[in-house]
Each structure stands twice: as structure tokens, then as C-alpha cells.
Nucleic acid binder design. Structure first.
Length: 251
DNA sequence: CTTGTATTCAAAGGTGGGCG
DNA sequence: CGCCCACCTTTGAATACAAG
């Protein structure tokens, strides 16, 4: 057993030696001998493979959901978003009480658990748009709606430095996680000045397939702009733009 | 970076035997 | 009786993997 007594408490792996920390100090040892083939075939790893299958399914579901909202996500920066969404997706799959472990999926899980998911951890919707809103999902008509009563932007919108205008946008998606396809749509308000003028009533409606049997997701977001010499510029690669899932209708 | 799991290694903690 | 070494059990931690 190698002990590290030097002044550099390494952590991680260099070549075949792994450095790590325990309560008894920093230690070093060789890597273990478990290899990929072993995990793929050894009966002892059945649990691991089951978990891997579900985790892989969560990753795929996460991808489909992100693709469905891709148009809105282009302007939103958060490098860990995919990871965070996958984490939540694992929870959704684990909520599936219908199938045996290893076979659990999103459809039989609780897609509603994703409600409130923030696509941008740097700028959360709950911290950017304080105006109250009402959501509604009409599965029969295939409409996803957000209604926002009039509000005073300067009071209810937390704008970053330099922003002069903002836009509220809504996106809806009907997602088929099994074949990895989706139907989506989005709509947005005009670019409104961030001043003391109350807004008009906003009624943002997105249409997807009527009488759908797939889970429906509704996202609401805010984008910030800078008005310079008659042109509207998006604010700094979307660090401050927010988007969150505000309503979900599972099955 | 995200999750859960089997496996393995080594340290740490506990116990028993042998010897002085 | 006391001390020390050897062995056994327990515990903690790291690794690999799955798909982006």
C-alpha cells in the first residue's frame, strides 16, 4: 500500500495508479481489474446492466426533450443542462411502478416530475419573470396555453444590466419517447420595452396533435434584448435568458 | 457530469493464540 | 498476566459502464 506523504494531495488517476483521499489520509493504489467485457457478460453484474439500461434510456429521453425545445435552447447557456435533465429523467424512470427494474421507462414513469425544470441554471425563470401566469393543457384540442395578465415590466421582470427589451415565449411539445420523435411549436410576445408601461394581456398558445396519447410538455421563457440605433440585439449569448417547464401532462 | 451496482483492495477494528 | 503478531470481519472508496 502506497501512502502519499508529499505536499501534493492528488486525486484521480495517472497511468495505472489511482490517487484518492480517505479519512486516514491520501493514498495511492493500482486500478481495479473490472473491465468492460466483464460488466457486459458476467452474471454478477446483472444489476449493473439493468441500471445501465435504464440510465441509457434516461439519456435518450433527455436528448429527445432537448431536441424538441432546441429552437428555444439555442439562446440559453448552461453547460450542465443536459446532465441535470438526465438526472431528473432518471427519477422519472424510477417512478415507473409498472415494469420490472431494467425495463422501466419514461412512459410508465412520472413525466410530471419534470415540472419546474429550469433549462438555464444561471438564470432561472422564477428569478427573471415575477409576473403570475396561468397555464392550461387541453389534450383533446391539442393546445398548450400560457395566459399572463397585464403587468408592469420594470416591476415584474428582473432584467440584467444593459437590457432594454424583453420577450416572453412559450413552447409546447408532444413527445414520443419510444420512437424518439416529437411534434412541437412555439410562440412569443413582441419585444417589449422594460419600462413602467403595463403590458397587454398575453395569451400564448401552441398547437400540437389533437387527442394525443403522448406526454405533453409546456415551457415558458424570457429573452432579453438590447435596443441600439434601431436594431434589436440579443443579449450576450443567452446567459440571462430563462426557460423552464411550467406544465406537463403525462399519461 | 449525471445514476446505481458489483467487485476489489486496503485500512481499521476486533479477537485469539503463542510466548516470555 | 501482558504483549505482540496473525488472522478475520467490517467499512470505505474507487472503478467501469450505460448515452448525450
Amino acid at each position: 500500500m502506497a501512502k502519499q506523504s508529499g505536499i501534493i494531495p492528488l486525486q484521480g488517476t495517472i497511468g495505472n495508479i489511482t490517487f484518492y483521499k480517505t479519512k486516514s489520509g491520501h493514498l495511492a493504489r493500482e486500478k481495479t481489474s473490472v473491465n468492460a467485457n466483464r460488466i457486459a457478460t458476467d452474471p454478477a453484474f446483472i444489476r449493473t446492466r439493468e441500471n445501465g439500461a435504464e440510465f441509457g434510456r434516461a439519456g435518450k429521453a433527455s436528448k429527445v426533450l432537448r431536441t424538441a425545445f432546441r429552437a428555444m435552447l439555442l439562446n440559453i447557456g448552461d453547460s450542465y443542462m443536459a446532465s441535470r435533465l438526465t438526472r431528473e429523467m432518471v427519477k422519472v424512470i424510477q417512478a415507473d411502478a409498472t415494469n420490472a427494474r431494467g425495463l422501466r421507462n419514461v412512459i410508465d414513469g412520472e413525466a410530471e416530475l419534470l415540472k419546474g425544470f429550469e433549462f438555464n441554471n444561471n438564470s432561472r425563470l422564477t428569478g427573471a419573470l415575477y409576473a403570475p401566469f396561468i397555464t392550461a393543457i387541453d389534450r383533446v384540442a391539442g393546445t398548450l396555453k400560457v395566459d399572463i395578465p397585464p403587468f408592469v415590466p420594470v416591476n415584474m421582470v428582473a432584467a440584467p444590466m444593459g437590457a432594454t427589451h424583453f420577450k416572453v415565449q412559450a413552447a409546447g411539445a408532444e413527445i414520443d419517447f419510444e420512437v424518439e420523435t416529437f411534434v412541437n411549436g412555439n410562440t412569443a410576445s413582441a419585444e417589449l420595452p422594460i419600462d413602467a408601461t403595463p403590458t397587454a394581456v398575453m395569451a400564448l398558445t401552441v398547437n400540437v396533435t389533437a387527442n394525443s396519447t403522448k406526454p405533453l410538455f409546456l415551457a415558458l421563457g424570457v429573452e432579453f434584448y438590447q435596443h441600439v440605433n434601431g436594431t434589436m440585439y440579443g443579449l450576450k449569448n443567452g446567459t440571462y435568458n430563462a426557460l423552464a417547464l411550467v406544465d406537463i401532462s403525462g399519461m
